[in-house]
């Protein structure tokens, strides 16, 4: 039983991270119907920038408390990523807004490659370690271990998601976003500045990516210029699982994917009598994803896609 609870905790922490990154995919998709492939890379840049700042402060004479140093890193990473997201949209996606659907997908892949290789040139090819600034107090619940950082990750993700949901549902900007998602033309007629709304979406998504990036590197203790790829892929899968374009869906999809992966890796061996082991963890995750989509073709919370008529 304690093992099961531990696996659940493992999955929830992993899932919270997926969910936070998935939000960036889902917001952009909801409005532009574009898979922003470069979003994983923005997350990576967030982690790298924060680590550079943290490294600089830690290396200087300043003797600040660890959490404050991390906070400083986050506070620099957020505007850096926002600027990056804003630029990516302006340079790579805006000129293609009226192009066939797949054209911006290719530029997104191109941007991804450029960001990865730029990060490689700037921060080097090595794995960068996250200095041990965050105390790792461990608590025991029913025989399972959970650290402060893990609790913090779950709480922060939930808070951010709730905030985002409120923003989209209640604020003027949120209304403009929903209107743009419905129809750019009509929204424009109603006085919505579509370009500005799309820019805002990228800004918010990139800020979330920065937070997620720092969280990932703090939790796992490392950052690397290639880290965005796998993270982005998993987060995108999570967004689709939940129903892409839907904020609550991204949260649900992320948490579910995290738990599925943890339970898959933990129990697949016992379930199949040792025939399949934890190396089939991703097979298991994708299998669940495919199964869900076969029965609910637009994800768990996604709106029914109306057939074109």
């Amino acid at each position: 039983m304690d093992i099961f609870i531990q696996q659940l905790i493992n999955g929830l922490v992993l899932g919270s991270i997926y969910a936070l990154v998935a939000l960036g995919y889902t917001m952009v998709y909801g409005i532009l119907e574009l898979i922003n492939f470069a979003h994983g890379e923005v997350t990576m840049i967030g982690a790298m920038v924060a680590l550079a700042v943290i490294g600089a402060i830690a290396g200087s004479a300043l003797d600040l408390p660890g959490l404050l140093v991390v906070l400083a890193g986050v506070l620099v990473a957020i505007p850096a990523c926002m600027l990056l997201g804003f630029t990516i949209e302006k340079v790579a996606y805006r000129p293609l807004r009226r192009a066939p659907r797949l054209a911006p997908l290719i530029t997104a892949i191109g941007v991804s490659i450029v960001l990865q290789n730029s990060a490689m040139l700037i921060w080097g090819r090595q794995y960068v370690s996250f200095p041990p600034l965050i105390p790792q107090n461990s608590h025991e619940i029913l025989g399972a271990h959970i650290t402060d950082l893990q609790i913090f990750i779950i709480l922060l993700s939930t808070l951010i998601m709730a905030g985002l949901w409120l923003l989209v549902q209640q604020s003027t900007l949120g209304r403009a976003m929903r209107a743009t998602a419905q129809s750019k033309e009509v929204a424009a007629l109603m006085g919505v500045n579509v370009d500005r709304v799309i820019s805002a979406t990228f800004l918010i998504g990139s800020a979330l990516a920065a937070i997620a990036g720092v969280m990932v590197s703090a939790y796992y203790g490392l950052a690397h210029y290639y880290m965005g790829f796998m993270l982005g892929l998993k987060a995108f899968s999570a967004a689709v699982l939940g129903g892409i374009g839907n904020i609550a869906g991204a949260m649900l999809g992320g948490l579910l994917l995290g738990v599925i992966e943890a339970l898959g890796a933990g129990y697949i061996g016992d379930l199949t009598g040792g025939f399949l082991g934890s190396h089939y963890q991703d097979v298991f995750a994708f299998f669940v994803l495919i199964l869900v989509l076969v029965f609910r073709p637009s994800g768990l919370l996604g709106e029914r896609v109306a057939s074109r008529a």
């Binding site: 659907r101 994708f286 495919i290 989509l293 076969v294």
Partner: peptide
């Protein structure tokens, strides 16, 4: 066969999963 009902990006992610499943096997 199982993906006939899926469209667009949902199809993309299922086919992506299929590709990864084959590679992992």
């Amino acid at each position: 066969a199982p993906t006939l009902r899926l469209r667009g990006d949902y199809l993309a992610i299922v086919t992506l999963g299929f590709g990864e499943i084959i590679r992992i096997f």
